[in-house]
């Protein structure tokens, strides 16, 4: 196994899948000549050529729709949003076309497309560039939503997403592109969609975390270990379809759960997970489910305010202490 960054792992997945299937092509703003705004697509134009790696104008609605149209007739587009903030312009095509095409055509037109790019908060880029939109997309039947938290997951899940015959929203985290981790060398390595991963085993409390919150939750678990609280950290990895079974199994063991997320709390994914836990494991709970979410405000610019808006280790530790009645 080689140690690579999340950025490199994603690049490997793109390259391998494009070499594997000539119907796969990549398009988006600055993906080709510029080699990607975040260098995820570095080297791909040179290796695969301009037919397969395509710079688009800044025209998110139409290139998202163009991808969906191409997918209707057998191509397998990967559409990069420079950041998912810009996908907001393309939501008509993602929701009204990609998500519903198979259903409203009575099963005739599948849409094998991946919409990918960074989402969530970055480094002081303020309100319009710091949004976690997974709950929007996860709301819609017809879409699959994936959020990796390690380089290995990023590579394995992206390969699965590209091979999947449904539209997949693949949200990377801008702050995590430089994170390093071991990635299997095997070209056939994939991580299946819809399967949660237990990132750390524990017995006293469950922390459900995704994307940027996974390393934060793991640090919180280390802190709590020293206090004698053993935490299990579960990363759903796929938001839709959600592997609630793995989460519920953990809750049945630990009887206490904290759901951590970077996004706003209202109508968020943590709210959904909390509700599912209550419906499926109410009798196993020794405390109400506790959420730790991003602040319910647009993201501020000032460094100190931005830090306050994003959940941190201390907040997760405090939440676990609360559900364990240690305070």
């Amino acid at each position: 196994m080689a140690v690579v960054t999340m950025r490199e792992a994603l690049n490997q997945a793109l390259r391998e899948e494009m070499l594997r299937d000539e119907n796969v092509f990549l398009m988006g703003e600055e993906v080709a000549a510029y080699q990607g705004a975040y260098k995820v697509t570095k080297g791909l134009l040179e290796e695969l050529g301009g037919k397969r790696v395509i710079d688009t104008p800044i025209t998110e609605l139409a290139f998202a729709g163009l991808g969906v149209g191409a997918a209707m007739v057998g191509l397998r587009p990967i559409v990069e949003f420079m950041t998912f903030n810009f996908s907001i312009l393309a939501t008509d095509q993602i929701i009204n076309s990609a998500a519903k095409m198979l259903y409203m055509s009575g099963g005739q037109f599948k849409i094998p497309i991946v919409f990918r790019g960074p989402g969530g908060s970055a480094f002081q880029v303020s309100s319009q560039h710091s949004q976690a939109l997974e709950s929007w997309f996860a709301y819609f039947p017809g879409l699959k939503v994936v959020m990796p938290s390690t380089p290995a997951d990023a590579k394995g899940l992206l390969k699965s997403a590209i091979r999947d015959d449904d539209p997949v929203i693949f949200i990377e985290q801008e702050r995590m592109y430089g994170n390093k981790g071991e990635v299997p060398d095997d070209a056939d390595f994939i991580v299946p969609l819809g399967v949660a991963d237990i990132k750390r085993e524990g017995t006293d409390a469950t922390i459900v975390a995704r994307s940027l919150m996974v390393p934060v939750a793991l640090k919180a678990a280390e802190v709590l270990e020293k206090e004698g609280v053993s935490c299990e950290v579960i990363d759903p990895r796929t938001i839709r379809p959600l592997d609630i079974g793995t989460i519920v199994d953990s809750v049945k063991k630990t009887n206490r759960v904290v759901v951590a997320e970077e996004s706003h709390p209202f109508c968020g994914v943590a709210a959904e997970i909390s509700s599912e836990i209550m419906e499926r494991a109410f009798d196993y709970l020794d405390a109400p489910v506790k959420r730790v979410s991003g602040a319910d405000v647009p993201m501020p610019y000032a460094k100190n305010l931005e830090d306050l808006a994003i959940p941190n280790v201390d907040q997760i530790v405090a939440a676990v202490r609360q559900v364990a009645y240690l305070d």
Partner: peptide, 13 residues
């Protein structure tokens, strides 16, 4: 039917 071309049963490898 026809919601997904590749329906996934979550948690199943």
């Amino acid at each position: 039917t026809d919601v997904y071309a590749n329906p996934i049963e979550p948690g199943k490898h």
